[in-house]
Amino acid sequence: MAQPSTDANPFGYSEAVWRLFNQAPRAGAFAPGTAGVVAGTAQSNAAHAVLRIELQLAGGRVADSRFRAYGCPTTIAVGAWLAGWSLGRTVAELRALGAADLRAALEFSDDRAHCGLLGEDALRNALEKLQR
C-alpha cells in the first residue's frame, strides 16, 4: 500500500507535548541513597497516571533532576518538562509553579487539565518532604 501524507505528530498533541513525550529527556531515577535528592509522587484517580519527580538540591538550587511517569503522553511530557525546567531553580521558584504554568508551557487542552494538576502535586509533594 502507498503511504498517506505523514506529519511528525499525527494525533493532534501540542508540539511541546509531542516532543517531550517522544524524547522524554531526564527520564529515570537517581541511584538509591544519592545525596541531596528529594522525590515527590502524585497519582490521579485509580492510578491511571502516576508521576514521580526527583530533584537533587545543592546550594539552595536544583542541580540535577529525573522523572518517571505512567500515564498518557501529556503526563509523560509534564514530567519531562518539570524535570528540565527545575534545573537551576531555587526552592522559592519551585514553590511558585502551578498547574496553570504547566498548561501554558505545554499548551495542552482543557480536557488534560488533570495532567497539569498531577505535575503540581508531584512538585508540592517533593517540596513538603524537603521542608520536613
Binding site: P10, F11, H48, T75
Partner: peptide, 25 residues
C-alpha cells in the same frame, strides 16, 4: 503500559487500539 501512550508511541503503525488518542473521555 498506559493505553494512550502505547498508541501514541506507535505513529508508524496503523492499528486499532483499546484506547483513543487525544481524548480523555
Amino acid at each position: 503500559v498506559e493505553g494512550e501512550s502505547l498508541r501514541a508511541a506507535l505513529p508508524g503503525l496503523a492499528v486499532s487500539s483499546g484506547s483513543a488518542c487525544s481524548s480523555a473521555t
